[in-house]
Design a protein around this nucleic acid. Sequence first.
DNA 1: CCTATAACCGATATATTTACTAGGGTAATT
DNA 2: AATTACCCTAGTAAATATATCGGTTATAGG
Lengths: 168, 168
Amino acid sequence: MRLSKRGEYGIRALLLMAERENEPQPLISLKNLAEKENIPLKFLEQIMIQLRNAGLVHSHKGPGGGYKLSRPAEQIPIGSVIRILDGRLAPVKCVSKTAYEPCDCPNEAACGLRMVMSDVRSAMTSILDNTTLANLTQRRKLLLSTQENCNEPKNAASSLVDPFNIPD
Amino acid sequence: MRLSKRGEYGIRALLLMAERENEPQPLISLKNLAEKENIPLKFLEQIMIQLRNAGLVHSHKGPGGGYKLSRPAEQIPIGSVIRILDGRLAPVKCVSKTAYEPCDCPNEAACGLRMVMSDVRSAMTSILDNTTLANLTQRRKLLLSTQENCNEPKNAASSLVDPFNIPD
DNA sequence: CCTATAACCGATATATTTACTAGGGTAATT
DNA sequence: AATTACCCTAGTAAATATATCGGTTATAGG
């Protein structure tokens, strides 16, 4: 159930831009983005073009040029980013609301796989469509400020148990 | 955020076995499984071997042989199946509890991407570790019996709105 | 105006992973 | 003896993730 590199890099880049959105010069160059986030430059270029075509970012040419968010970070949910870059959120296409395509099981409505995946899709979208770039930079700031003051212990091993003892 | 074919086929096959678990002869041959679920035979063979090695299914050789669940369907969560076949559930490896590997961001704890993905992972595992093969066959039975009696209208278009009008 | 910068754009090549396909031989079991 | 799981190898096809090359266009600063 994996997030593509495309999606990952896109989100990372947008988060960086979100952190700068209120600075006097919010533009960041491709090279800068790529270096800071360790993303292959030309791959990122393709990703940024997609994001621009989708209207998420604005660009400026010339020296000192670069990219910036086209709207406030609190108006950009992570879900939209993934949809733009990966085509859909849903784990299988037969549970996608708008990128729906049928699977080849005889009775789709009574398909067990479809039932779980539909639940998963709902859970994912409720998170991803309600978490914006701004939410994340905010959480980051909070965390960094508390990190300075107190040395919290790392969170202990989860109590979640996989009956087959196999990884997440 | 996709489920691999491997995972999909594995779950489909196990669901079929789950429906038979209480029949006098629960064994299903590979060929049978592959035909009923439209899965490439040799690919499914590899998947079944993995599931057998993980202890999820038992097999019997010889004429009339085949596969069956190694334990009651209510003791097999979908999450375990995906972990066995895909290596992990988590959308990115840096949020996996036991298949954890670091990503290359400077401060992992303050990584925005990691924060959302961690939330997504939690939501996914809470569904996938609490939904068993038995839950799904049960839901299927319920649905099929109500389908016979009344002609429910199909669920109308969702009220979920993607601000960028792009698919799930 | 000139020049360097950096976006824009497109094609193509390579690597890796995923999704299969093909083949063939061994071992139980009916 | 026929069936069917078991097992391993290797190859192909397509998708994903990248790299390489090379050009055009807008623009800020000198």
